[in-house]
């Protein structure tokens, strides 16, 4: 094997793409943790739900087999979405919008019924409740959607996003999907960062994460802020879920599990509770994994990722961007 510069670049681009997905999911973990100090274990299942909702929407809007299978009123709409660049952009936009909203609402719903009753319970109770939600959602997908791995494509096997090489520089090929994922994740991250640091609601969120009670006394509606965090996080997770399906080519009921652990790891590497930390951690982890797989061994990529995590935490116990928390006396 010859490790050339173009090989290094191509692996780095693989890593940045993967990192973009991790970052999007990691934000959901970090937002919830920042405000409620709980690990939302069910977040990985919302990522999975995003993948399924996205596939459903794509099939309805752009799979002729669905229209032929009895839903003929969809045919004219499908004709538009399947034609030209405008149709393609609209298709992608509508898919992401619907998946994000549906899954965001799922997040709000889960918070309302599974976590809110536990806000004053012992610390591990919400974690167990979240694990319960996670098991429930996985099995719901298994029983009510499919136990099989579903291809992320039309019934005739063609992909919704053509997996073409967009351009090649210095022997490095970059695909359309990779550009889409990297650009979208960066845009969403920038948007979220501005939203949290500049807007009034964003300030309320930050206040709540610093001191929930004090923020409440200052007139912040705690419940709405928490509900909002439980909307935004899963919505971003859903975007990552749809991308995941398009990029890797399938959805399965247990697909959220591994990306879930990794994204949580990313959030911790960056400093949990810190939005920019989650983004940094996500990209870093993606690149590390990709390079570990490319230069060391694919079998040990997760081992290397977790060793990096342990090293980061041993030397910077608060994560890269997190502050070492002063102990309250």
């Amino acid at each position: 094997m010859n490790f050339t510069l173009s090989y290094l670049l191509e692996q780095t681009i693989n890593g940045i793409t993967l990192g973009g997905l991790y970052a999007l999911v990691a934000l959901g973990y970090t937002m919830v943790y920042g405000i409620l100090l709980m690990i939302n274990f069910a977040h990985s299942e919302l990522f999975m739900a995003g993948g399924y909702v996205g596939l459903g929407v794509l099939k309805l809007l752009a799979d002729p087999a669905i229209a032929k299978g009895g839903l003929s009123f969809l045919a004219p709409m499908q004709a538009f979405f399947n034609s030209g660049t405008a149709g393609f952009v609209a298709l992608i936009a509508v898919t992401f919008l619907i998946s994000a909203i549906v899954v965001g609402l799922m997040g709000v719903f889960i918070e309302r019924f599974a976590y809110r009753p536990l806000r004053h319970a012992p610390r591990l109770a919400p974690l167990i409740s979240a694990i319960g939600v996670s098991i429930f959602l996985q099995n719901a997908a298994l029983l009510w959607i499919s136990s099989k791995q579903l291809p992320y494509s039309r019934a005739d096997g063609t992909s919704f996003v053509p997996a073409k090489t967009a351009f090649t520089v210095f022997g490095v090929s970059v695909s359309t999907m990779q550009i889409m994922i990297i650009v979208t994740s960066l845009l969403l991250l920038a948007f979220l960062d501005t939203f949290v640091s500049k807007t009034r609601i964003g300030k309320a969120m930050r206040a709540t994460s610093q001191d929930r009670e004090a923020a409440g006394l200052m007139g912040v509606n705690i419940n709405s802020v928490i509900a909002l965090a439980f909307f935004i996080g899963p919505a971003l997770g859903a975007v990552a879920g749809v991308f995941n399906g398009m990029y890797y080519g399938s959805v399965k009921f247990n697909m959220g599990f591994i990306p879930g652990i990794k994204s949580f790891t990313a959030a911790v590497i960056g400093g949990i509770g810190n939005l920019r930390g989650a983004m940094l951690g996500g990209f870093l982890l993606g690149i590390i994994e990709s390079l570990a797989s490319g230069f060391i061994s694919n079998a040990y990529r997760d081992v290397i990722a977790f060793i990096v995590l342990i090293l980061v935490l041993v030397f910077r116990p608060g994560g890269l961007l997190g502050e070492a928390v002063a102990e309250k006396v």
């Binding site: 943790y33 652990i261 911790v268 977790f306 342990i310 041993v314 116990p317």
Partner: peptide, 28 residues
């Protein structure tokens, strides 16, 4: 020895990572 100075959920994720490291190393 190295990780017990970590608090709460940081400890949780480090132990999680360790568990996976052990499993993967056994598997490989």
């Amino acid at each position: 020895f190295p990780v017990l100075k970590l608090r709460g959920d940081y400890l949780a994720i480090v132990t999680l990572g360790f568990g996976e490291i052990v499993r993967i190393c056994l598997n490989n």
